[in-house]
Amino acid sequence: MLRVEEVQSVEFSSALISKFDEIVSRYPEGRSKSALLPILHEVQAVYGWLSSAAMDKVAEYLNIQPIEVYEVATFYTMFFLKPQGKYVLEVCRTGPCCLVGAEKIMDYIGEKLGIKEGEVTADGLFSYRGVECLAACGYAPVLQIGPEYTFYENLTPESVDQLIEGLKNK
């Protein structure tokens, strides 16, 4: 399950470390492990994914065992354990979205980008994958793009075209 590519070493910036410190201050004394999920989100927002080197560094910071970080990173679907495209299009594929055409939208994105689910385009810009219910069923079909998880609603092939072109030119 845990398949990570080797990254030699990671040094967190002082800005990132002070963000970690602020997060840890939200919990009672001795409960800093609670900061693990928010910290992993911060790390992924900077690096795009979680390398084992980065996870080891997080373990070191929180003074916990590396395995405690790995077991969390592998449990939660938002964490990427291998590099992704710069923009990961995450399309909701659960019931209500499928009632109004989510499967067709996902096929369309695959065709348009010329990749399969989970792959990265040659220019490194895009990946896509199906994800489970994003709690936006009234605006279906929907997709989100991290790390800020911006939402794109009521998708059509035309709006997908616009979105992808817009991101290419960004």
Partner: peptide
């Protein structure tokens, strides 16, 4: 972190403690 199960209250508490 993207896990439906964390809507179950005790799973939510585990998650809030930084665990699976």
């Amino acid at each position: 972190g993207g896990a439906y199960i964390c809507g179950e209250e005790t799973a939510l508490l585990e998650s809030l403690e930084g665990k699976r």
